[in-house]
Amino acid sequence: NNNLQKAIDLASKAAQEDKAKNYEEALRLYQHAVQYFLHVIKYEAQGDKAKQSIRAKCAEYLDRAEKLKEYLKKKETTPAKPV
């Protein structure tokens, strides 16, 4: 259950950073968490219901990560307003 716990921890940290508006860090952590969750689904025996539940969580995290990525990309290309 080590990898599952690791995945949960990462997802939890990601949500914290997200809340704190540290979007770059949150994005990185969301990606990491999904990677671990995927490993658990593929290589560590879980019941079908548990697997689908994990997949649904991954979908949520991936959606959120995509939004953060878009936001960060826009931020990069928007020139800073002159003072």
Binding site: L27, Q31, V34, Q35, L38, I41, K42, Q52, R55, A56, C58, A59, E60, L62, A65, E66, K69
Partner: peptide
């Protein structure tokens, strides 16, 4: 909903897409 029916391949694909810039 998408979250209910997502598959491992979908997850992998999205993850890869996120990783690329």
């Amino acid at each position: 909903t998408k979250a209910d029916t997502i598959s491992d391949e979908d997850i992998e694909r999205q993850l890869k897409a996120l990783g690329m810039d």
